[in-house]
Design a protein around this nucleic acid. Structure first.
Lengths: 210, 210
DNA sequence: CGTTAAACGCTACTACTGTAGCGATAAAAT
DNA sequence: ATTTTATCGCTACAGTAGTAGCGTTTAACG
């Protein structure tokens, strides 16, 4: 039940007699392994990313990597956690379409320029840790993005009763579909196009419940 | 350039001196391997599907399987080709929303009940053959579904100039996003919900160019 | 028929995955 | 400073992925 992530974790359940020791050596091992994994991913791509390679690049022993992260998905999940700062806030441009466009530009960049995101998606089909990390990441982002919808409702841009989650997924899902699943040719103004469609749909009440 | 699929293929380029021999033995080997792969997939799931298992179940030698299909993605691509009958036609229920709902029910069933589709998507991240097969499959389906949009435009249900592809992707992408990428809890009336949103959006002109 | 070579079966090898057991190291507590 | 034990390094092992080389079978064709 307890999170298997052995990072600097103060939120350990006090009930268990377990004593964590995230001190000097463990932290250094984690740092070396994550750095090596990220470097390998950036330099040689997801297909080249194996536990053995990470072990060799980092100097951390293979069995230690297996013990702490279990598989590549676990490593990527840890990298994601570290990278996705909790301070992230949704954009606020003054209009629904502007906000959705800004979000989509971030998604687009993540799917075309950042190898971690796509690698994590790929790994999520083979690693439960990666799948869970991704679910958590997306849940957090969609939750915070609900503010965008709330503002649009308050200023009367879209009807009350608009379902934030449905609208946000409608605004981003086509990007994932085109770029990740269909691997279509990247169209630089796809973000705007999809965001505009979603905003128009929302104004027409396409995402109101009942 | 020539398709590496050694099936009953009459469309071999006559320029090459290559002589295909899809006769008795090769056809039997293919049949046995595909049957074994599908049976294994249905009975024990994607994670259990390996070349070695297929070889053992089918009696076809491992090296032969590797030679003909290269990896699991190749096997799944071949299975998809065989299963996706070319006679498929988009539904025609009389309304845009009805058609989109019908399509979405097929997609939903494919993603929840049919192990081949999800397996192929998973394999597409590790196998170029699987990715290519999926691209082709989707391209064919979206092309044919353009009829749905055409009919809706002709009867004045949605504005002229509506981009068929954008509309169709808006109508289906959320399903893939929820079920494949986010692995959300399956909601039985998600197909209708998403189809209705897309139809409403289309009527509001959300997918018109310029 | 007999000939030819595509496709198959077999052995052997390298590389990666994942785990078990045990001793060594060092972080935390006394 | 000493003790405790979480964590790490190491060896060894079994299983899977993927390829190379070579001999055999058999489909296709004259």
């Amino acid at each position: 039940m307890a999170s298997p992530r052995p990072t600097i974790d103060l939120s350990d359940e006090p009930g268990t007699g377990r004593v964590r020791r995230p001190g000097g050596r463990s932290a250094a091992v984690r740092r070396r392994a994550l750095d090596a994994a990220l470097a390998q991913l950036v330099q040689h791509g997801y297909d080249s990313l194996s536990i053995d390679v990470v072990a060799e690049r980092s100097g951390v022993h293979r069995t230690t990597v297996y013990r702490r992260w279990r598989d590549i998905g676990g490593l990527l999940a840890d990298i994601l956690d570290e990278a996705s700062v909790d301070a992230w806030r949704p954009p606020d441009t003054g209009s629904l379409e502007g906000d959705l466009t800004a979000v989509n530009h971030e998604v687009y960049a993540a799917l075309t320029a950042d190898p971690v995101t796509v690698a994590l998606i790929a790994a999520s089909f083979r690693s439960e840790q990666a799948a869970e990390a991704l679910r958590g990441f997306w849940a957090g982002r969609y939750d915070r993005c609900a503010d965008i919808v709330r503002r649009a409702v308050e200023c009367g841009e879209i009807p009350a009763g608009t379902d934030a989650r449905r609208l946000l997924i409608a605004a981003t899902a086509p990007l994932y579909h085109e770029l990740v699943l269909m691997r279509a040719a990247t169209d630089a103004h796809l973000p705007e196009l999809v965001a505009r469609s979603a905003a128009t749909a929302a104004r027409a009440g396409a995402f109101t419940n009942r």
